[in-house]
Every structure is written in structure tokens, then in C-alpha cells.
Design a protein around this nucleic acid. Structure first.
Lengths: 139, 139
DNA sequence: ATCACACCGAGTAAGTTAGTAGGCATACCA
DNA sequence: TGGTATGCCTACTAACTTACTCGGTGTGAT
């Protein structure tokens, strides 16, 4: 369940959109500058997020992006899964098949992996963008 | 905190060694066949585990590997960390610096990532090889 | 002396990551 | 109606990582 740069960029961009929700739409360029994300790369990421229906866009001059749901109803797990794939520690199907196939021998190991995934998902699927925005400066 | 094939192989091999503990030493070849792990690859993995002082080896004819500590005192977290690196979702230093640098903006995000890591570590650092061997056939 | 094993360094093919490049499509505005 | 600002789309690529393999050397029991 490694989070890639892409995933981190996605989270940062979404947080930025959450701050401007619901009034303003926010331009790719603006996000890229403020969050120090390579602009063309961010473009691709936002396209993914759009395909996942987490954001929507307006084209043309004065275009930009905005969240499709209020920040309190968008969870980190959704974001990470759309850009980085499943949250499980054994991401690829191959490894899973291994464990399931060697069922007898390793079912306990399989169970532990499940527990880990559930622990991670439990946190990420219950933390919303709103939760993150509520603490503007902690520490 | 993705677990690679290498990590999975390491876990399987260690479980195998745990079963034979403390009487027998187990040969690379034997483990490779029983667990269906590429033998030469497994060799490298065991070398890593040896460097991490989780296992020890005997050379020459009748050589082989054995755990350096009883299975109840070897935890999955140690194994995974030695072959796959840190358990945190943001493995690389680069991403961490990003989050820490943009401290004000994203400290909440950083906190969530910490929580996820701690949840995973909490499970993996408290599950021992003995725990896995206790359940020979569950399900 | 032989054989069975562990040890070791190097090499490599395929896949993934983290981007970049360049142009098209659409909307606003003068 | 034409310019400009924006998002949309496809393709490409350099660097890195993964998952191995190869060919040998060192060591100890018999």
C-alpha cells in the first residue's frame, strides 16, 4: 500500500480544492504553483480524479476544477485507490493467488495481511478532506 | 508499505524455518522446493535475513539455515523491514521531506500517514512466527 | 578428494514511476 | 470573429525498481 508521488500529489491537490469549495473553481496552474507539483503531471492526475468522479471541470477561459462532493464526503481512501490502486499490502493479484493457493500452509499469514489492509483502510476510508482542513495548523 | 514478492518469499521461508526450529537446520534447496520459490533468489533473501541477524547458517555438507531466535521472538515487522524497507506508506525520504517541509499546510495529512503506519506496525510488530505456526489449518 | 552445501558479485529483461512534449477542443471576451 | 486562456488527449521517454539468473568460490563432513 505504498503511496507514490502521484498519490501524494493527488491528496495535496484535493485538499487545495477542498479549501476553495464550493465557491471557487481552481485552475491546474494555480494548484501546481501553490503545491509545487509539476503542472503537466498534475493535469494527468486530475484527469484520473475526474474519471473517478471525484472532481469536475469547466473548460475555456475562467475554467478550472472543483470537487463533485462536499469535502466531508470525500475520503482519502478513495483518492489513493484511484491513483495508486488497492490499499492492500499485497497489491498485485499474483501474490494474492500465491497465498490463497498455498491455503493450508499460509492461511494465517493471509489473515494477518488482511488485518493490515483493514487497519489501513479503516483509517483512510474514515478520514475526509474536511477532517484534514479542520486543522489548519497543528503542532 | 507494499510487500513485494521478495518480502512474501522471506515470510514464507521464515515460517518454514520456524516449523523446523530448533532441531533441524533447513537447506535452501529444501525451502525453495517446498515453498516454490526460485532457488537462487531465495539464496539472496536468506543472505539479507542473515545480515539482519534473524537467521544463521552452517556451511558445507549438511549445512543449512536456522532461526537465531525462537519463533515467538521474531516478528513479521522485522522480516518485512529487512527485505522491503520501512513499513510507512511514504517509504522514500523524498515524500516525507515534502510533507514535513509543507508543514503548515499538510501537518494533518502527515498525521494521518503516521497513524496508518502505526496501525500496520502495531499488527506486524506484534505478530510472531510462532503466532502463525499455531494455526496450522484455519478456515 | 569429493561432494554438498552456503557464499558472493555481476548482469539483465521486464515493468513501473515520474515525468515531458505537443497539439486539439472549448469557452469567454473584446 | 478572432485571440487567449484554459482543460483534454495521446504519445513518448529516462531513470529506477523488481525479480530474477549465471557462474563461480569457500567450507566442511565423509
Amino acid at each position: 500500500m505504498r503511496i507514490s508521488s502521484k498519490g501524494l500529489y493527488a491528496l495535496e491537490a484535493m485538499i487545495r480544492l477542498a479549501r476553495n469549495y464550493p465557491e471557487r473553481t481552481t485552475k491546474i496552474h494555480e494548484i501546481a504553483v501553490q503545491e509545487e507539483i509539476p503542472e503537466k503531471f498534475l493535469e494527468l492526475i486530475l484527469l484520473d480524479l475526474k474519471a473517478a468522479r471525484l472532481v469536475e471541470s469547466l473548460r475555456g477561459a475562467n475554467g478550472g476544477y472543483r470537487l463533485r462532493r462536499p469535502p466531508g464526503k470525500i475520503f482519502l481512501g478513495e483518492i489513493i485507490r484511484t491513483v495508486d490502486g488497492p490499499l492492500a499490502p499485497l497489491g498485485d493479484a499474483e501474490s494474492l493467488r500465491r497465498l490463497v493457493k498455498n491455503d493450508r500452509k499460509h492461511s494465517a499469514l493471509y489473515q494477518v495481511m488482511l488485518d493490515v489492509r483493514n487497519a489501513a483502510a479503516g483509517i483512510l476510508d474514515h478520514t475526509s478532506l474536511a477532517d484534514l482542513c479542520r486543522h489548519p495548523a497543528r503542532s
